[in-house]
């Protein structure tokens, strides 16, 4: 298996390489550049030209690309044009915010979705099933930002239970108050993501359980007089978890993907919000780095999922 994993990791290099060329090329096709927004009546256009020239924006795109690649190989993804900080530093700060919020939301999502799926599947066709099916159809069908606004309005503004934006209160100072303030600020966005993000797990898990319930081995177990609870816990549940497990690699890498809508609406400075502001500000170096990061996470997610599957399902071997 190790050989395969190493081969897969090595294969990522050309894949990322192709992705980086595409990203670089398409980013340049966008109208405007990082300096377009700088002009004002007193701006000297020669100065803007000089800034563009200094940034190498007039060189052919492949020349810019090779320069960027050379730096990237040495771990330098360049400076953010707009934030005037190294790209890696900015991503590092934002990644921490995104990671903790996503982790909390993933935990909450599973906590909501798994019992929901079990209840629905165990009561197939009954009102409990209908209830959770309807719930998931609604949360899937309506754009999430509508719900986020609703949640902010109810829990943030009407009930006043939670802060409605940011990652930490400016009043919090010292390690412990900052820690608790961060958790407190994370709850509402993470909860919103979780409450409205159950549909994927619910669909797979519920239908997994329903499928497994009708399998021969379940009938055999029943015929042998194994208790229903044991059959459910030991056999059905384990096998029904496989589709979820197959997705788990993506869940892990998705912790750093960033939630664009939630972060923007909650004013939570993570990677998702950074991505949007970088695109609108034509921050090329940041856009390239973020898309590459996401590409890398996607590939890694696929690999992790395969490994996880091989671990939980003895029938599957990576070859």
């Amino acid at each position: 298996m190790w050989k395969v994993i190493i081969r897969r990791i090595l294969l990522m290099i050309p894949q990322l390489f192709i992705l980086s060329i595409l990203v670089f090329f398409f980013a340049k096709l966008m109208p405007g550049d990082p300096f377009s927004g700088l002009i004002g009546p007193h701006t000297d256009p020669h100065e803007v030209e000089a800034l563009r020239r200094a940034a190498g924006l007039y060189d052919p795109w492949w020349e810019q690309y090779l320069r960027w690649l050379g730096n990237a190989i040495h771990g330098n993804l360049g400076m953010s044009y707009n934030l005037k900080e190294p790209v890696m530093t900015v991503i590092g700060h934002r990644a921490i915010n995104t990671f903790w919020m996503s982790l909390l939301s993933v935990i909450l999502t599973y906590l909501f979705a798994i019992p929901m799926s079990i209840v629905a599947a165990r009561n197939e066709g009954k009102w409990q099933d209908q209830l959770w099916l309807t719930y998931n159809s609604i949360t899937f069908g309506i754009p999430p930002y509508v719900f986020y606004l609703l949640i902010i309005f109810i829990f943030g503004y009407s009930l006043n239970w939670f802060p409605t934006g940011g990652t930490v209160s400016p009043d919090a100072m010292g390690i412990i108050p900052v820690f608790f303030s961060k958790i407190y600020h994370m709850i509402l966005p993470a909860f919103s993501l979780a409450v409205f993000g159950t549909v994927g797990i619910f669909t797979y898990f519920r239908s997994g359980i329903l499928d497994e319930q009708t399998q021969d081995y379940v009938r055999t177990a029943r015929a042998k007089g194994v208790k229903e609870k044991v059959i459910f816990r030991r056999h059905i549940l384990r096998n029904a978890s496989l589709p979820i497990a197959s997705n788990f690699g993506f869940v892990i890498t998705g912790l750093l993907g960033g939630a664009i809508f939630a972060e923007t609406i909650f004013g939570y400075p993570g990677l998702g919000q950074l991505f949007i502001t970088s695109i609108s500000g034509r921050d090329y170096s940041m856009i390239t780095a973020l898309i590459l990061l996401n590409g890398f996470l996607g590939l890694l997610g696929a690999l992790l999922s395969d490994i996880i599957m091989a671990m939980v399902d003895p029938r599957i071997r990576i070859q």
């Binding site: 606004l149 940011g166 923007t264 004013g267």
Partner: peptide, 11 residues
């Protein structure tokens, strides 16, 4: 603080 455009009126 910063408040996003989607929330400001509600705030």
């Amino acid at each position: 603080e910063i408040v996003s455009t989607a929330k400001s009126v509600a705030a």
